[in-house]
């Protein structure tokens, strides 16, 4: 039975009506926007009933210009290898205490990817076995990929802005 993305959406619709919205397709991939409370169940359904057995990717994003309850996003890519169907899911999370269910009970591969997302954005994953930083040092206090933090090391003394054409006037 060939499975196409529309059938996936229909099945999700009959099962999880109202739990997700904004189905949009662009550049060959369908994105659905999922409520925070439903993401675990939807991924579980996709994995167990519709054999999306490969969790391709988990990552985060920071939207500083969004509304307060949509400042962060956790983004999941799932792949059904047999039917070759991919789906992307996005969960928006609030500025205050961004938390979402961990996928580690379903996919081992989510473990480090979620730790990385926590490391970069401070999005906490509930039920994660080891919610600590992975790439940066444990002593780090900031979540560096949030837009408000600068790229460069703030403590650099050798880099005189005047020599890089940067003054307070042209910033």
């Amino acid at each position: 039975m060939a499975l196409n993305i529309q059938q996936v959406i229909d099945q999700l619709d009959s099962r999880f009506a109202g739990q997700f919205g904004n189905v949009e397709s662009s550049y060959g991939m369908t994105t659905i926007q999922v409520r925070k409370s439903a993401i675990f169940d939807i991924v579980k359904f996709l994995k167990e009933e519709l054999s999306f057995i490969l969790l391709t990717d988990v990552c985060g994003a920071h939207f500083p210009d969004n509304d307060l309850d949509m400042r962060f996003a956790a983004i999941y890519h799932l792949h059904n290898l047999v039917e070759n169907v991919r789906i992307r899911m996005r969960v928006f999370l609030p500025e205050e205490n961004p938390e979402v269910d961990s996928m580690t009970p379903l996919f081992e591969s989510a473990n480090w990817q979620e730790r990385e997302t926590y490391d970069f954005f401070g999005i906490r994953f509930i039920n994660h076995p080891n919610m600590t930083r992975i790439l940066n040092m444990d002593e780090m206090e900031v979540f560096p990929l949030r837009k408000e933090y600068p790229l460069e090391d703030a403590g650099r003394a050798d880099k005189d802005d005047r020599f890089f054409g940067r003054t307070i006037h042209n910033e």
């Binding site: 940066n136 560096p144 600068p150 790229l151 460069e152 090391d153 650099r156 050798d158």
Partner: peptide, 8 residues
């Protein structure tokens, strides 16, 4: 790699 994590 003029970034926060790299020793300059």
């Amino acid at each position: 790699f003029d970034t926060y994590s790299v020793l300059q």
